[in-house]
Amino acid sequence: MDYEYPDGSGDYDEAVPCNMTGYNKDELTIQTYIYSVICALGLVGNVLVLVTYAFYRKAKTMTDIFLVNMALADLLFVVALPLIIYNEQYSWSMGTWACKLLRAAYSINVYSSTLLLACISGDRYISIVKATRSIRIRSQARAYSRLICVLIWLLAFILSSPTFIYYQMDHNECITIFEKPVTATLMKILIPSMQMLIGFLLPLMVMIFCYSWTIATLLKAKTFQKHKAVRVVLAVISVFVLCHLPYNVALLVYISKLFTVRACKEEQLTLMTLSISRSIAYLHCCLNPILYAFIGVKFRSHFCQILQDLRCLGKRYIYSGRSSQQTSDLYVSAVKTVVEHNHDNQSSFTM
């Protein structure tokens, strides 16, 4: 707990505790509603992506494999989000390991999803800019796409390891505890710095490079579809920047003020800015399915097929009165029909 000295004398005995949350009840309520919307949209969107790839189309291309892993990363974070909300507002009572896992959920999601986005941009760059050699390059790279995903997940866990190590339970609060002041100083700088560099700047640089060449190549083509693809690329980059840039700027400001004397109101404003910008960053996990999956024509057709199959199953269950085995057979039949008609191996992120 930080303290503010109202008379400026620096007398610790007369210090007034500074409320480090800076929130009132209404602001907490608004934040809870925002997180709830993010959780609901992210859950529905990413589950639909995984269901589509599991039953309606196979992940054949590199981008498809990256999309499946990105949906899984976003889904894991979305599942943890309600407990993160609870932890921010109430005393923690779920144990040390739950504390560590939930605190690491966002870190793992940031590293894995943003690096996967960079990989998707690289695959799009090869398929469009290097179109004459893309079949050979992508066929070779596809063999290693699952290995790339494994390495990304491994890197995300390694970079998130300080969270597993230093978060502990203290008086029913999930907080960081450092044994030595030197370790505390190093980790308070290193953890957010690595998140900014590897979780934001590196993927952003890769995306800017790959998509700049992609846009330049697409603009040379005069067809309507190519120009529509340019707008898709611009939307992808814009949403990524708008979601992650505010939080990373807030982190940079936080680090710059970390070891300076700060007034209570200034610290409250800094922490509130971090919290608001972090909520915006959370929003990206429910926008990913829209930008990278549902925007593709083929993926939308699969989504419509899912809704149609669910409606048929509902009618069959309500009106036919047949056994549950017959209903299950109908579902499997519908899935097989869609899969049999899906012989193309193009990415769902159609350009």
Rank of each mutant, 00 (worst) to 15 (best):
A229S: 14
I177K: 09
S193Y: 05
H171V: 11
Y111R: 07
R231I: 07
R124E: 06
L190W: 07
L101I: 14
Q225F: 08
I189C: 00
A235Y: 07
I137L: 06
V129P: 10
Y167A: 04
I215L: 06
V110Q: 12
W97P: 11
C149T: 13
L190V: 12
C149Y: 06
M196E: 04
L219A: 03
V206N: 09
G95H: 08
T185A: 01
V236K: 11
I126Q: 01
I126K: 01
G122Y: 04
Y166Q: 11
H171R: 13
G122V: 02
Y144G: 03
D123W: 03
M169W: 06
L201M: 14
T114L: 04
S160T: 09
V230A: 07
L151C: 12
T114F: 02
I128K: 04
F157G: 05
K220T: 05
V232P: 04
A143W: 02
S161N: 09
P162D: 05
I108N: 10
S145E: 03
V236P: 07
W153Y: 13
M169A: 08
K222E: 14
M169K: 04
K226S: 15
Q168F: 06
F164R: 05
I165L: 11
V150A: 13
L115G: 01
L101R: 05
G95C: 09
W213A: 03
S112K: 06
A221M: 13
L116H: 01
F178C: 00
K130Q: 14
R136N: 15
I108R: 05
F164C: 08
M187G: 00
M205W: 07
S127D: 11
V233L: 09
V182W: 00
C174S: 05
N109D: 14
